[in-house]
Nucleic acid binder design. Structure first.
Length: 302
DNA sequence: AAGACGTGGAC
DNA sequence: TGTCCAAGTCT
């Protein structure tokens, strides 16, 4: 029996449900995608935008997108380049492309309605394990293990007694999440949202506010004396000087221009020609940029 | 199954 | 200034 399993076996999940969901009732943020009028499409748009991106930066973009494209078919009717342009500086622009592709698939395969079935959600572009569970749970009230970075951190601390979860989600974490998930469907959906919110507002990565935590008395990490993370280093993300930075600069120029852009204009954003060419090729390969003619580029028309 | 993939705020 | 971090997905 592994340490994780042993720890989990000692933890009574039902003892956590009430304090966490009760805390959520009084502390949940009033986010637009949580309002009933958001609908499943609103939830899905928010989930795409929130992938690796803070709520504060998503809020204005979300409002713009829902106003412009209130239904999947509205987005699907536009060129994918318009989605990339409207994505602005949110980051990871491939998400815009995938959201556009998901909207097309929803329009073609699902009659314009965001599917409620987990497997059908998972089959959509840009929808992985987390997003499928999140949409099914938040939009449709279903019972799923929703394992995002917030939930993983809460479980790592409260149950497993460690500061941080592993770099990649493990089978043990999935088992633990399944075991802690309330049996009742509506309660499970509330639990998913509540544990995420607890991780986002209280049990944060750096400087958790245990004084505000509804399960502090039961928290295994706190009870163990807050031991420091001792596993492999949590991989940092370098950025300056990388292809990613060059891609970002190139795409920014394309986004701002409503006319095709010449090679000379793109060349101005980065002085190292080999890396610049590699970045541009990558953008074209990803479908984020479309060659119009020799040395002329634009955002994709389709 | 590591690594690629943007951007900006906080400390 | 540099590092860490933010509701992941894909290959």
């Amino acid at each position: 029996m592994t340490t994780d399993t042993a720890t989990a076996a000692r933890t009574d999940g039902t003892a956590l449900h009430l304090p966490v969901t009760a805390w959520f009732e009084g502390n949940a943020r009033d986010l637009p995608w949580r309002r009933p009028e958001a609908g499943a499409w609103g939830v899905m748009v928010s989930e795409f935008m929130l992938q690796q991106t803070p709520v504060s930066r998503v809020l204005p973009m979300y409002e713009q997108w829902l106003a412009r494209w209130p239904r999947p078919a509205d987005l699907a009717a536009e060129p994918s380049g318009e989605a990339v342009r409207a994505w602005g500086r949110l980051g990871y622009p491939r998400r815009a492309l995938r959201l556009h592709a998901a909207a097309s698939a929803i329009t073609e395969r699902h009659g314009g309605e965001v599917p409620s079935d987990h497997a059908e959600l998972l089959a959509l572009p840009g929808v992985g394990e987390y997003t499928a569970a999140a949409v099914a749970s938040f939009a449709y009230g279903q019972r799923h293990t929703v394992l995002d970075t917030n939930v993983r951190r809460v479980f790592a601390r409260a149950v497993s007694g460690v500061q941080y979860p592993p770099n990649a989600t493990t089978a043990a974490e999935r088992r633990l999440a399944r075991r802690l998930l309330p049996d009742d469907e509506a309660t499970a959906a509330r639990w998913a949202a509540a544990t995420m919110e607890l991780g986002a507002l209280v049990c944060v990565a750096r400087g958790p506010e245990c004084g505000r935590c509804p399960i502090a008395e039961r928290c295994a990490w706190r009870l163990a004396g807050f031991p420091e993370h001792d596993g492999p280093p949590r991989r940092g993300q370098s950025y300056a000087g990388t292809d990613r930075q060059v891609r970002g600069k190139l795409l920014a120029v394309l986004r701002e221009s409503h006319e095709p852009v010449t090679q000379a204009t793109l060349d101005a954003v980065w002085d190292e020609p080999v890396q610049r060419a590699r970045a541009l090729d990558g953008l074209v390969a990803d479908g984020l940029v479309e060659p119009v003619a020799q040395g002329v580029y634009r955002l994709p028309l389709e």
